[in-house]
Amino acid sequence: MKKTDILLKPVEKDSLYLKISDAIYSYIKLNNLQPEDKLPSERDMAAMLQTSRNSVREALRILEDRGLIYVKTGSGVFVRDPYGENRSITFRLTECTTEELQELQTILDHQAVLNAISRGTSEEKENLISIASELMEKYSHNIYSHTLDYSFHTKLYEMGRNKSIHQVIQGVRDTRFIQRENEDGENDSIWLETVPQHLQLAQAISQSNTPAALAAIDEILEHGFSLINHSK
């Protein structure tokens, strides 16, 4: 582990496995780990999180089920390529304002939603509703999960069958995620407000209700970017 790594933080005991999986997800993002990068050992993660190895192992199973990591027996835990293949084009957005990023993501997310409506299978649409319902179940207990949110948007972009849109949006989302994670005194409750819109979006996609789907994604995006604007 490099001295510059941002360490995992201890978590509360409620919804333990989900909170541990979120903490590991945050570790991956904040340390900018790339596909095939190796995570700390179960023992080290358990020590950083001040929990048991069994709890860490269960959280890793959740992340593996969600497609974020994979476990190689005898070698350790590694970050998985969420796009299923190596990217042949690499680029970076520089000197972009928040407003410019919001305009770009809105255009791309609108197309992703349209693609999901027209290209997603019935099974995929039901799966999207299932993930959104899981988010809502946690929402009813005042719990938000980055892991479930990641799963929702990954499934949405995969349904659109356009890897370029998926990769660019994910880059913008990761940038926003890191900006929010670095805010002092902030917690995950700031994202709870968007959970009902995720279910509305999934249902609208399943019903091929384009206006409702675009309205829901706009509300989700507006909330996320408003947080960045208010922090300036």
Rank of each mutant, 00 (worst) to 15 (best):
V71W: 07
L30V: 12
N209Q: 10
S26P: 01
N86D: 15
Q105T: 14
R119F: 09
G160A: 07
S55P: 00
S130Y: 08
S122R: 14
S151P: 10
M1T: 12
Y70E: 05
S130R: 14
A132L: 09
L221H: 11
L214Y: 13
H198R: 07
A116P: 05
V11Q: 05
M1H: 14
I117D: 01
N162A: 08
S151C: 11
S118P: 07
G67E: 10
T106V: 09
K155R: 12
D5L: 08
I89G: 08
L8M: 15
R161N: 15
C96I: 12
D65K: 05
I20H: 11
T147C: 01
Y17G: 02
H110M: 11
F78I: 00
R119T: 10
S122F: 14
R173G: 05
S21G: 02
D5M: 09
E64T: 15
K9G: 05
F225A: 05
E95L: 03
L128P: 06
K2M: 07
E100I: 00
D174N: 13
H153F: 15
H223Q: 14
I178N: 11
A213Q: 01
L93V: 08
A47W: 04
L68F: 08
Q203F: 04
M136R: 14
Q197W: 12
T194E: 11
S226G: 04
A204V: 05
Y150K: 03
